[in-house]
């Protein structure tokens, strides 16, 4: 098992360094160390399941070691700036004030075609409209438009609309969701009065939604 432990450490460190150098494009939503752990765990865990000849410890030791290393590393990364700089992928600015940065694009290995495609996916057709386009550590590209290209906000228009918050699903297929009822800032009595006013029972309702502003939307099970 000593060999397995040492091999696990070597493979973990090798993958960590490899993934770090592969950069943002390969990462998806995960941090480097998370991706490495996920890759290794899925392989290691299946070993004793598919091969009856090897002891369970051949998977248990690497799994526990990887889990511990991952948590320790994430904890250490919070404290150590130097290590964070070394192991974590940093965001890089691909477009600054409408001008693409070829050096940053080269470092992130993002071609102009790919950058333009990513911009189009965000409904941007002209890079000149972009104040900043940033390649994020998780592989995504954040686009911040110039003030002239942005849709005007209600603040800029001098309008103060009512804050509606979010819609809470209070009744779903005749079943009351008590947690959402409380979250919406109402109680059972309010719901009973509402149903009474609409001459409905809980069972008659397919969906009952209520937003933070108090606006209610009722969808009965059968159109009356």
């Amino acid at each position: 098992m000593i060999t397995i432990l040492i091999r696990t450490l070597i493979i973990y460190l090798t993958l960590l360094v490899t993934m770090r150098f592969m950069g943002k494009r390969q990462l998806g939503e995960l941090e480097v160390s998370e991706l490495v752990t996920t890759l290794l765990l899925s392989e290691v865990a299946s070993l004793p399941i598919t091969n009856q000849d090897i002891p369970l410890s051949y998977a248990l030791i690497p799994i526990l070691t990887l889990m511990a290393l991952e948590v320790i590393l994430s904890g250490v990364l919070l404290k150590s700036r130097w290590l964070k700089k070394l192991l974590s992928v940093r965001p890089s600015i691909l477009i600054r004030k409408g001008k693409p940065d070829p050096k940053a694009m080269e470092q992130s290995r993002i071609s102009a075609e790919e950058l333009f495609s990513r911009l189009r996916q965000k409904d941007v057709t002209d890079p000149a409209d972009v104040e900043y386009a940033i390649a994020e550590p998780n592989g995504q590209i954040s686009v911040i438009l110039k003030a002239t290209a942005r849709q005007a906000t209600t603040k800029e228009l001098g309008i103060t609309p009512t804050e509606r918050g979010m819609m809470h699903l209070i009744i779903n297929d005749g079943q009351v969701n008590e947690q959402n009822l409380t979250l919406s800032g109402h109680d059972r009595r309010w719901l009973e009065e509402l149903l009474k006013a609409h001459k409905l029972t809980e069972r008659d309702i397919f969906l009952l939604l209520c937003d933070d502003g108090g606006k209610v939307r009722i969808l009965p099970r059968r159109a009356s």
Binding site: I61, L64, L69
Partner: peptide, 20 residues
């Protein structure tokens, strides 16, 4: 959780050494 993981790692190393 970091300290707990550190403990788990030490335990794993200890178990491996004892087993060896």
């Amino acid at each position: 959780s970091v300290w707990l993981s550190f403990g788990v790692l030490l335990l794993v190393v200890l178990l491996v050494l004892c087993n060896a």
